[in-house]
């Protein structure tokens, strides 16, 4: 069984979307031990014992994650199908590179397709989330 089917059908966590099922579109992206992976190309059994984060686990105590907040504010979604994958890839991106340039964000999103073609707003949102996260860190 593939990880994406385990998450959706067994755990009933349907925020992880099935898009192309051919490792291209990134709609099924989740974090496995903190790293963005395409859950259509991981066997559920390979993830045995690993920590998996889906879009359902991103907000804390009802507060949106800075990336979720920024996607909302920057109008970074139209149909929303690619959004969970975009946000989880964005989390991995900002973990490795807290202050990315727009080019670095675009390179980091190569594995996520948005068929509403809203890429510039998605890049805006990730830039804005990076600023939010760095301000939060300074405050802390």
């Amino acid at each position: 069984m593939l990880l994406v089917h385990f998450l959706r059908d067994t755990c009933v966590l349907t925020g992880t979307h099935v898009g192309c099922e051919t490792t291209l579109c990134g709609a099924c992206t989740v974090l496995m031990e903190g790293k963005a992976v395409k859950s259509c190309t991981v066997l559920a059994v390979q993830a045995d014992g690993s920590e998996i984060t889906t879009i359902e686990g991103v907000a804390h105590n009802g507060d949106l994650h800075p990336l979720q907040q920024s996607f909302w504010e920057c109008h970074a979604l139209q149909c929303g199908y690619c959004t969970p994958g975009m946000i989880l890839t964005g989390i991995d991106l900002l973990r490795n590179n807290p202050k990315p340039t727009r080019e670095e964000i675009a390179h980091g999103l190569e594995g996520n397709l948005c068929r509403c073609t809203g890429y510039s707003h998605i890049i805006d949102a990730i830039e804005s989330a990076a600023q939010k996260i760095s301000k939060e860190r300074q405050r802390a």
Binding site: M32, A36, K38, D92, G108, E110, G111
Partner: peptide
Amino acid sequence: IGDVQVRNR
């Protein structure tokens, strides 16, 4: 190679 998700696995 590929994209970041592919490179992670």
